[in-house]
Simulated assay, not measured.
Amino acid sequence: MDLNSPKAVATAALSCLDLTELGDAATQEATLALVDRAVNDFGSVAAVCIWPRFVAAAHARLGQNSPVRIATVVNFPFGDLPVEEVVGETTRAVGDGADEIDLVIPWKALIAGDEETVRDMIRAVRAAAPAPVTLKTILETGELKDPALIARASDIALEEQADFIKTSTGKVTVNATLEAARIMLEVIQRSGKAVGFKPAGGIRTVDDARAYFALCEEVLGAGWVSPGTFRFGASGLLGDILATLEDRSPSTRQGEAY
Results as ranks from 00 to 15, higher is better:
W51C: 01
W51M: 11
W51Y: 15
P52I: 04
R53Y: 10
R53I: 14
R53N: 14
F54D: 15
F54L: 10
V55Y: 01
A56G: 07
A56C: 00
A57W: 04
A57K: 03
A57P: 05
A57F: 00
H59C: 11
H59D: 11
H59Y: 14
A60C: 08
R61A: 14
R61F: 09
R61N: 03
L62K: 08
L62S: 05
G63N: 06
G63F: 06
G63T: 03
Q64G: 10
N65W: 11
N65I: 04
S66D: 13
S66L: 11
S66H: 13
S66G: 12
P67N: 07
P67Y: 12
V68C: 12
V68E: 12
I70D: 04
I70E: 08
I70M: 05
A71G: 14
A71P: 00
A71C: 15
T72Q: 09
T72F: 05
T72L: 08
V73N: 07
V73W: 06
V73S: 06
V73R: 07
N75K: 10
F76H: 14
F76C: 11
P77A: 14
P77K: 03
F78L: 15
D80T: 10
L81W: 02
L81G: 08
P82R: 05
P82C: 04
P82A: 09
V83H: 07
V83W: 03
E84Y: 05
E84K: 12
E84W: 02
E85T: 09
V86T: 13
V86H: 05
V86N: 04
V87H: 10
V87G: 01
V87Y: 06
E89A: 11
E89V: 03
E89C: 11
E89D: 13
T90L: 06
T90F: 01
T91F: 00
R92I: 10
A93M: 01
A93V: 01
V94K: 01
G95F: 00
D96F: 04
D96N: 13
D96I: 08
D96P: 02
G97A: 09
G97R: 05
G97P: 09
G97L: 07
A98S: 10
D99S: 08
D99G: 12
E100H: 10
E100L: 13
I101W: 02
I101C: 06
D102C: 03
L103W: 06
L103A: 06
V104D: 01
V104T: 11
